[in-house]
Lab assay of single mutants.
Amino acid sequence: GSPLAQQIKNIHSFIHQAKAAGRMDEVRTLQENLHQLMHEYFQQ
């Protein structure tokens, strides 16, 4: 897949890990990143 698709997959797993660790501030930051990446992805 594209590097962007790979990045989106990575962030999904980072979010999963951050949630499991209870780091909600990190989850929020990652979700904002994910949102931006998704936006770029669909602009392609």
Score class of each variant (00 low, 15 high):
Gly1His: 12
Gly1Trp: 02
Ser2Leu: 14
Ser2Trp: 11
Ser2Lys: 09
Ser2Ala: 11
Ser2Met: 12
Pro3Ser: 15
Pro3Cys: 15
Pro3Arg: 14
Pro3Glu: 15
Leu4Ile: 12
Leu4Val: 07
Leu4His: 03
Ala5Leu: 15
Ala5Cys: 10
Gln6Asp: 12
Gln7Val: 10
Gln7Ile: 12
Gln7Gly: 02
Gln7His: 06
Ile8Phe: 01
Ile8Cys: 06
Ile8Thr: 00
Ile8Lys: 00
Ile8Gln: 00
Ile8Gly: 00
Ile8Asp: 00
Lys9Leu: 07
Lys9Gly: 04
Lys9Ala: 11
Lys9Gln: 09
Asn10Thr: 12
Asn10Gly: 04
Ile11Cys: 11
Ile11Trp: 02
Ile11Arg: 00
Ile11His: 02
Ile11Glu: 01
Ile11Gly: 01
Ile11Lys: 01
His12Cys: 09
His12Ile: 15
His12Arg: 12
His12Ser: 05
Ser13Met: 13
Ser13Thr: 09
Ser13Asn: 13
Phe14Glu: 15
Phe14Gly: 13
Phe14Ala: 15
Ile15Asn: 00
His16Cys: 15
His16Asp: 14
His16Met: 13
His16Arg: 14
Gln17Glu: 13
Gln17Ile: 13
Gln17His: 07
Ala18Asn: 02
Ala18Arg: 01
Ala18Lys: 02
Ala18Leu: 08
Ala18Pro: 00
Lys19Tyr: 05
Lys19Met: 14
Lys19Ala: 09
Lys19Leu: 12
Lys19Cys: 11
Lys19Phe: 06
Ala20Thr: 08
Ala20Ile: 12
Ala20Leu: 08
Ala21Phe: 01
Ala21Cys: 08
Ala21Asp: 09
Gly22Phe: 02
Gly22Trp: 03
Gly22Asp: 03
Arg23Glu: 04
Arg23Cys: 09
Met24Leu: 11
Met24Glu: 07
Asp25Pro: 02
Asp25Trp: 03
Asp25Ile: 05
Asp25His: 08
Asp25Cys: 15
Glu26Trp: 08
Glu26His: 05
Glu26Lys: 06
Glu26Ser: 04
Val27Gly: 01
Val27Ser: 02
Val27Met: 06
Val27Thr: 02
Val27Trp: 04
Val27Leu: 07
Arg28Glu: 06
Arg28Tyr: 06
Arg28His: 08
Arg28Pro: 02
Arg28Gln: 08
Thr29Gly: 06
Leu30Cys: 08
Leu30Trp: 06
Leu30Ile: 02
Leu30Met: 05
Gln31Thr: 12
Glu32Leu: 06
Glu32Ile: 07
Glu32Asp: 10
Glu32Gln: 09
Glu32Ser: 06
Asn33Tyr: 15
Asn33Arg: 15
Asn33Ile: 15
Asn33Pro: 01
Asn33Thr: 15
Leu34Lys: 00
Leu34Trp: 02
Leu34Thr: 00
Leu34Tyr: 03
Leu34Gly: 00
His35Tyr: 07
His35Arg: 14
His35Val: 10
His35Glu: 09
Gln36Leu: 11
Gln36Cys: 06
Gln36Tyr: 07
Gln36Ser: 09
Gln36Trp: 08
Leu37Ala: 03
Leu37Val: 04
Leu37Gly: 00
Leu37Ile: 07
Leu37Asn: 00
Met38Lys: 03
Met38Ala: 03
Met38Thr: 03
His39Asp: 09
His39Ala: 09
His39Leu: 13
Glu40Ser: 04
Glu40Ile: 09
Glu40His: 05
Glu40Thr: 04
Glu40Phe: 05
Glu40Asn: 05
Tyr41Asp: 02
Tyr41Gln: 04
Tyr41His: 05
Tyr41Glu: 03
Tyr41Pro: 01
Phe42Lys: 06
Phe42Gly: 06
Phe42Trp: 12
Phe42Asp: 07
Phe42Cys: 09
Gln43Trp: 07
Gln43Met: 09
Gln43Ser: 11
Gln44Gly: 10
Gln44His: 10
Gln44Asp: 11
